[in-house]
Amino acid sequence: MAFHLDYFLASLVSGLAYLPRTLLLVSLPLALGLLGGLVLAAFRVYRVPVLGRLTALGVSIYQGVPIVVALVIYNLLFMSLFNDVAAFFGVATTVAEVDIIWVGIFALALQEVTLMEESFRGAFYSVPAGQREAALACGLTELQALRRIIVPQLVPVAVPMLMNHVVGNIKNSSVVIAIGVAEVLTGASIPAARTYSFLESYVAAGLIYWALATAAEQLIGQWEIRPEARQSSWFWQVCARVRRRRTVTVAQQEKRGQVHAELEAYQKIL
């Protein structure tokens, strides 16, 4: 079987054109998963009445359902109910006008929330109880202690686990083709419909996913570095330089304004 470089390149270009959609399918569920996972984990760790129990139940049920099955269920519900619901709220949009990518994002986000809840819960338990108690004894409220003391400490613990999620998520985002959402894999296969160069198409798609996963891994790894060790990392050096430049420009602007005002004052005197 011959491997045609030109077909491969065509697939690569065609696949890359769909990269924004894959990025959306990865980043939005990720953001929702981070937020939702953290909140749900807090419900369980702090044994919030009702919500804690509900979370535990929901997560355990959801983890038993394969993502493809969930996707198809949501899609069927979406297809059959959207028009009625839209009409009920007086929205003129019909189901045919809505990009089905949102169903994919919804399914991936829910999956992400349940996975992250587990990771965050583990990370919560890694922060010693004394940290919370010290914060409360200093007069912080439970929520302030969470935000200022506990969450900042569990992030470095949760990051390695989250990193696996992100990489897994990038790879898994292609399951949405099960309900016909177009993304990188779809894009890379377009030339194959004409040329039958399926191998080239899939290798091209694989390459794009791999590059994306590697880049994500590199970036997230930077958050794992503890604050005291960040001086020796290129990423944080760049961040610090950007921040410094910004403060410098602010200072320069202030100085410029001051000089300007002084000049005006002089002109008045003259």
Partner: peptide
């Protein structure tokens, strides 16, 4: 066992209650 806030410097540890609480 002290329970200083591990994510904060000595100065920030002492400031925390003043600023936040």
């Amino acid at each position: 066992n002290y329970n200083l806030f591990a994510n904060k410097t000595a100065r920030e540890n002492v400031m925390e209650g003043l600023v936040t609480a």
